[in-house]
Simulated assay, not measured.
Amino acid sequence: MAEKNISQGLKLALDMGPILAFFVGYMLLRDRTFVIGGSEYSGFILVTAAFIPLLALSTLVLWRLTGTLSKMQIVTLVLVVVFGGMTVWLNDERFFKMKPTMIYTLFALVLGFGLLRGQSYMQSVMGEMLPMQPEGWMILTKRVTVFFVLLAVLNEVIWRTMSTDAWVNFKTFGLTIGLFAFFMLQGKLFQTYGIETDKPGE
């Protein structure tokens, strides 16, 4: 399927919609307990069960509209299905809380492996969207690798030492704001190593 362009607003809605829905669902059901099939389930478990197909649906819609999915989106969906499924099946919220740790650790390992080989895997994936000199890509990849490691450690600390409310807020807002702030802080790097491309018609 050929890649198609969609509005950034729609793409953002498909990316962030399931996360925001999870947050709203949790806030509504966090103090409730449900008995299903003779077993008690917390609101967190039920919201997790709903989040899995919702994320799968939004990912499917995004793929149908654009004709493509990034490796990060695919891996994220797989890990959500695996860890979310284990959370619901075993009625244990710890598995879902581990998911961000697994995601960021995995990507840090992949990027780190590329760096050991003298390559920037980020450049091979994002090079067309963000034209930049190879040296700039290597610097950015090193920074992103370290950042992912820090996020993985931070997620572990928060879910193991703080309340579920604190973790949900961190997952919904903290990670999103952190990623946005990190890339905003790379502005000087983009200016220094960015490559100007000719606009159509010039």
Rank of each mutant, 00 (worst) to 15 (best):
A166N: 12
L77T: 05
D92L: 07
K188A: 15
G194M: 01
L106Q: 08
M132V: 15
F183Y: 13
M102Q: 03
F148T: 04
T192I: 02
T66P: 09
K11A: 12
P200G: 08
S120K: 01
E40D: 14
Y26N: 07
D198S: 14
G178L: 05
K4A: 13
G174P: 06
F95H: 13
F51D: 00
L20V: 09
E3T: 11
G85R: 10
K4I: 02
G67M: 04
N155Q: 02
F113C: 14
G114V: 06
A2H: 09
P131C: 10
S120I: 00
G136A: 06
L14G: 07
D15L: 01
L130Q: 05
F23C: 03
E93Q: 13
G9A: 07
M162R: 13
L189I: 13
I103W: 01
E93P: 12
F96G: 00
T141C: 03
I52Y: 06
L111P: 10
T176M: 13
L175F: 00
V110L: 15
V80E: 00
D31T: 15
V168Y: 02
A56S: 10
Y104E: 08
T164R: 05
T33V: 14
G43S: 08
G9P: 04
L55V: 14
I6Q: 02
K4L: 09
T33D: 13
V146I: 07
G118Q: 10
V157P: 01
L150E: 11
L179K: 01
F190P: 04
G127D: 05
D165G: 12
N5P: 03
G112M: 01
T161V: 07
A166L: 04
A152V: 04
I45T: 14
D15H: 02
Q119H: 12
A21W: 01
V153Q: 09
L130G: 00
K188E: 11
L106D: 06
G118P: 12
I177W: 10
M126C: 01
V144I: 15
Y121R: 12
Y26A: 06
S124I: 08
V125Q: 12
T33Y: 13
K71N: 05
G43A: 11
A13G: 00
W167A: 03
F183I: 06
L130H: 04
F51H: 03
M122F: 06
Q133W: 09
E202M: 00
L116N: 12
V153S: 08
L54C: 04
W137M: 05
N155H: 06
P131H: 06
T105K: 01
A13I: 02
G85A: 10
P134D: 11
T59Y: 07
E3M: 04
L10H: 06
A2F: 05
L54Y: 03
A50F: 10
E196F: 08
F107E: 05
V146L: 08
L14D: 11
M184C: 02
V168D: 02
V81I: 13
Q133S: 15
M184I: 04
M162W: 09
S70D: 12
Y193P: 00
V88D: 00
G112P: 00
L28Q: 07
G194I: 04
W89F: 15
G136F: 05
I195E: 11
V110R: 13
